[in-house]
Design a protein around this nucleic acid. Sequence first.
DNA 1: TCAAATATACCTATCAGTAGATAGGTTAGA
DNA 2: TCTAACCTATCTACTGATAGGTATATTTGA
Lengths: 202, 202
Amino acid sequence: MSNTREQLQDRAEHYIRQGGFGSFSFRDLAKDLNIKSASVHYHFPSKSDLGTAVAERYNRRFEHALPGPAKSKLTTAELLRQYILMFYTEMMHSKQVCLCAMLSVERATLTADINATVDAFYALNLSWLTEVFTRDGLPKPQAYKRSCQVLATLQGGLIGAWSQQNVDYFVQAVSGLYKDLFAKNLRLPKNDPDAIAATREA
Amino acid sequence: MSNTREQLQDRAEHYIRQGGFGSFSFRDLAKDLNIKSASVHYHFPSKSDLGTAVAERYNRRFEHALPGPAKSKLTTAELLRQYILMFYTEMMHSKQVCLCAMLSVERATLTADINATVDAFYALNLSWLTEVFTRDGLPKPQAYKRSCQVLATLQGGLIGAWSQQNVDYFVQAVSGLYKDLFAKNLRLPKNDPDAIAATREA
DNA sequence: TCAAATATACCTATCAGTAGATAGGTTAGA
DNA sequence: TCTAACCTATCTACTGATAGGTATATTTGA
């Protein structure tokens, strides 16, 4: 796997998660890597191919980072906390929004390939969450309801925080949710002032 | 106020709420109204002007639709139900996402004018929600936390439902939230099968 | 072993299409 | 006669994409 190909995906993901799929061109990517736009087409024949590759890579990364709920000895509350942290920390130090939240919004302008990969993201997350909630005896319909609620709050929190350039919005939204679910406070790593400042300036 | 100007905003809002600000051109609008793109520039000199006008109009509409919490004799639960319904019904029969959720996501590519109007949307909603929650004695920090949670869930729910073309995702997420807040079920108008089918096909 | 063939990763040059925007002309109604 | 609301025509900039060339490295076969 060539390094260039990976770097192109890195840059594309960066652009998508800041301004959406339409916010960058092959020439932008080329400039970033000091190559020509025709060379970008060598690695990804079409922009849809690139978008699909980036989204698939994102899903794989997400899937790999999810703690296996069945085998895990962690409590449900702790599993959920780790799940929330995945969103939180990535936002904190990459100052970016969930890739699939961005692509969700642009759905009408994207190719079927990309949309299918975004669909897979939802399926992946909802099935993991449902599994977690079902674990301690919650009936499947309730577990599914909870899953939708959690994912919606997380994505909505990210988008609102990004829009207002205020990480606290995310923290407030999610800690409210967590308390409703587990009747205890959500512990998050201390708000790093540098990261927040960096988010503001971006 | 010319009719054309209003129609242009209607069409622009429609495009934005389906595919984002970058998903349409002045030529698209011109075609929709059977005029020329130069005439669109007559009404809105720049695309930023148009975007700002559309977002401001959206805010005004939202503000007007919000029931005044102070004077209202409705319970907090009922006020919230009505608030939720604003998002729900608009999604149901316009098959579209919250305008500001779309614009939030594209923030990095938009002008300062548009972004300021989106900021005003969050301020407007959060202050209304906070006022509602404060009404029955909830301390301000808790009320604010609730407000972030509610708005995040609603916007995240809309985006997820739009992405998956499945209204039920929104309903699940929001009814979960509502039950946490008021310990009773959220009553929503029956899912209109036609509207859902229409959403799926779009 | 060494030349021929192939593959990889880039390049130049260019295409047709579309974008937002502007200058300046036309028309119809007050 | 003035102005609002359109028009034609055109500009520059940028988009994704393609054709075809080059240099380097790797693999293959006699």
